[in-house]
């Protein structure tokens, strides 16, 4: 039942490297700054995904007042991804950047929650994407946008910079607007044995299928 492997069936090497916690990371993913990336387990990073973990907040900034004192406490993790999250092919994950006065560009840590599905060819630069969010194909989550729980971002949406998407919204358009609300049963079911998976639901079954 498995999806046929893309392209030619190469040698014995499987496409994915599986870690102890069950993360599956494609050998064809471009991952920079690996020490700054945290994966929660059972998370899939597919081929062609670009993750810019090297864009972390600079620690050795000259201290110039109160705002940097708060910044110094922040750990160097640039990208955090929760459990059971799927990052589909050719997606870019890039921590958002803001240039503040005097201190040059500063990158902010990017957080993605549990059971988040990110469709192929998306660009994620959000500040945070909460759990059980379904992002369709070819979406752009512009810098500093915040997507709350149980949201559905329809394919091809451009979520404008710094937009806050309230929980349970359906977002569509360029620029993205809240066009509706998900049903109360959002994300229920799925994940069970042999059951079809649902958007926003448990993605474990889908993760298991990826190989």
């Amino acid at each position: 039942m498995s999806r046929p492997a893309p392209g030619n069936r190469r040698s014995t090497k499987s496409e994915y490297i599986e870690t102890d916690t069950g993360n599956k990371i494609s050998r064809k993913a471009h991952i920079e700054g690996k020490p700054n990336i945290m994966l929660g387990g059972r998370t899939v990073i597919m081929a062609g995904v670009t993750m810019r973990g090297d864009l972390q907040r600079k620690q050795e900034r000259p201290a110039d007042g109160s705002e940097s004192a708060a910044a110094d406490k922040v750990s160097s993790t640039a990208i955090t991804i929760g459990r059971g999250t799927i990052i589909s092919t050719n997606t870019t994950i890039r921590p958002p950047m803001r240039s503040s006065r005097g201190s040059g560009p500063t990158f902010y840590p990017l957080r993605i929650g549990d059971n988040v599905f990110v469709g192929p060819g998306s660009h994620i630069s959000a500040l945070s994407v909460s759990s059980n969010v379904h992002v369709g194909a070819g979406c752009v989550l512009a810098p500093f946008s915040i997507v709350k729980e149980h949201c559905r971002i329809l394919p091809g949406t451009v979520v404008p910079p710094a937009m806050v998407v309230p929980p349970g919204s359906v977002v569509a358009g360029k620029p993205g607007r809240v066009v509706g609300e998900v049903g109360e049963g959002w994300g229920q079911g799925g994940g069970g044995e042999g059951e079809e998976w649902v958007e926003g639901g448990d993605l474990r079954a889908l993760v298991r299928k990826v190989r």
Binding site: P6, I86, H134, E199
Partner: peptide, 8 residues
């Protein structure tokens, strides 16, 4: 399932 297409 079109919403779970992972490869473009």
């Amino acid at each position: 399932n079109p919403s779970f297409v992972m490869k473009s």
